[in-house]
Design a protein around this nucleic acid. Structure first.
Lengths: 218, 218, 218, 218
DNA sequence: AATGAATGAGCCTTCATTCAT
DNA sequence: AATGAATGAAGGCTCATTCAT
């Protein structure tokens, strides 16, 4: 009050775009904290510092709000991973950089990851559809890498294996490791990614025999 | 009438244990159908064919009820898998038989699996704790196999890998594959288990080069 | 307490049918007092001496509740009027007795009449449909009387008049007179009915006998 | 720019009177569409193409707005009917021309009629008072005609009839016929008016000439 | 042993109304 | 003069839980 004429106590009357972001941020926090159903619009409005009618006016119903949270975070995840992949290197390195970017995202956006991974699926309906699409996106990316590696090695796909199945397993392993990681924050994203590479790309048996997969460069 | 004090005229009046099973069965169905929060005690009582006060009298609150569902199904899962593992064979075969038993359980108890895997975690609190314990049980089992295989091969655990981390990833992959499988019922449990063995035990790269892991006997 | 062991303070735990009647009675009162939209379920529950969940459990939503009020009162009105008509007398006397019964109903059930006449139509939707049906029932009854009187007098219906239109006007006049009457309670139902008979029946009789009023010029 | 200080660049900035008319027009439309309570100020502002604060600034609260709608439309109705009556002709012709003008108004201003007849009464309070006044105005006009016709015929008002009651019935019949007419637009206002004249005036004339209908027995 | 009857509490949603620009 | 931004207050509806029979 002595140093600055600027009063901060009333930061009201903000433009719509800003408020919408505030609300979505708050919603992600609250949905991550309680899950969809137990989360109350009251708590969202409180955390956002905005009255409930604004939420309804700007973002629509609770369902709409949740959906927009999911979409925003899902897109952020996709963009982050895609930006982290170096397309000019060998398939294994592409996978590794993608995984590293993925774990980076999880570390930087724990709430987003919680909402996407633990909450949205359980609710079902439109939300599960959205998450399923996200996962299928990931599986498709991994499948492409797997197939391209197969080609490089001059191998036609073996009938008894499903590239998509393997990719689904790999993606599931990556997700599970992310959850496991949440309580062990002292491990770096790169290390996690390496574990997965060694487990799935190289195989446990090779590991046992002393072979280790390592990033060629970064 | 002379031989038995039990009268037949009361089709009701079932012994407590039977009622409790009826109720738990109904609860699993309803929780799998809607998830914990949206599920209503009314629907449980309706599906169980039992009035609501009986549920409260026998099994306690909604939270208690859900907890007992989880525990019953978790124990069933553990028992089923444990019963499926042949302890007299090599570690890889133990893992394979365990996985096969796991997928058998998922196929035979879809509702149980849905409740355990998709719902309980999302609710958090005591429930998540319970599920986490279940998963840690699984991880511990797998870790033991992994370590024992390492010993057989005369290898000290390498510092840069966490047996538990690898096991967590493997368990996660197995769970993810179970979900992926729910929409593709034409694949047999054994085949799913083989995929996982090849992906994690043998490694994708070995696969590509023509090595394939196969069950030695069964 | 000294004179009677009977405690009246807690008249709870009544059978469903009784509660339903209590609730409907209260609802008619409240809807008549405020109209459909401003009426609150809270007030209905308060007037009924019953908690809100019972209303929803027994009668359904606010819309359902209103609809059932309308239907109950409409049927009561129809039954009352029909019971008041002596079918063995001449058409004019049938009309008169019907009107007298109608005004008797309005006098005895002011709230019912208010709900039926002033509120239900204004709300529109299903409710207006219901009221329209009631009115059409009344118009049909009157039309029958009008036509039978025409036949008695040996008159084919004249093309330039619509029996239904005349009946609608007559019914409207009767309703309007009922409203007008609400603030002048010292007039007896029979007198009101006589007024209407003199205004409309005498005119109608002239029509039947071939007299027609026509504009003299324009 | 030299001749006029008014700039053309502002398509907005309309004079207050114009804005008020816009708003009232929109309000009549919206109130006719939904009724008073379900109508929202948002919809009014949207239909009017004017922001909500302007409505409050120019016309006050929702209640004020509705009241001014009613008053404007009521005055329009009164003026229209009064303008349609030829005061130089016989009473029956005056009534007929008045009715014709009334039905002309209903045909030309359905929304106004809906608001006045179906909505305003149901809301009660000030609004019902306003409508009651309108109706009493109509009844007074008709009563005057009725009495003047009685005088022309040299008849003192008979004690057992209330000129006002008869007029109320006639007005009610006219209103009811207007509603009935809304779904049958192929009939001309003049024909409707004729029906009413035949139904009520002929009867009234008999009354004036001493004929009285009486119940034969009860 | 078993249940119909009953409710306190809370949540989603909307609306009339005003403030600050 | 004109409006986007903002909210207090209230209403419909549901649910887990218990009481009295």
């Amino acid at each position: 009050m002595t140093e600055s004429g600027q009063q901060v106590e009333k930061a009201k009357r903000l433009p719509r775009a800003v408020r919408e972001r505030q609300i979505l941020d708050a919603a992600v926090t609250v949905f991550a904290r309680h899950g969809y159903h137990p989360a109350s619009m009251d708590e969202v409005s409180e955390v956002a510092g905005v009255s409930k009618p604004m939420i309804y006016s700007y973002l629509g119903s609770k369902e709409d709000l949740f959906l927009q949270c999911i979409r925003r975070e899902a897109n952020l995840l996709i963009d982050t991973v895609q930006a982290g992949i170096d397309l000019d290197v060998a398939p294994d390195m592409q996978l590794w950089t993608g995984l590293r970017a993925f774990y980076g995202f999880v570390a930087d956006h724990r709430e987003s990851w919680t909402v996407l991974h633990q909450q949205a699926l359980a609710v079902g309906g439109k939300f599960a559809t959205e998450i399923t699409a996200l996962r299928e996106h990931a599986i498709a990316m991994v499948t492409k890498l797997v197939v391209s590696q197969g080609s490089r090695k001059g191998l036609a796909e073996q009938a008894e294996f499903s590239g998509e199945g393997l990719a689904a397993a790999l993606v599931g392993a990556a997700e599970a490791l992310a959850d496991w990681w949440l309580d062990r924050p002292d491990i770096s994203p790169g290390v996690l990614a390496s574990w997965l590479m060694n487990l799935t790309w190289l195989g446990f048996n090779d590991l046992v025999e002393g072979q280790v997969w390592r990033p060629t460069d970064a």
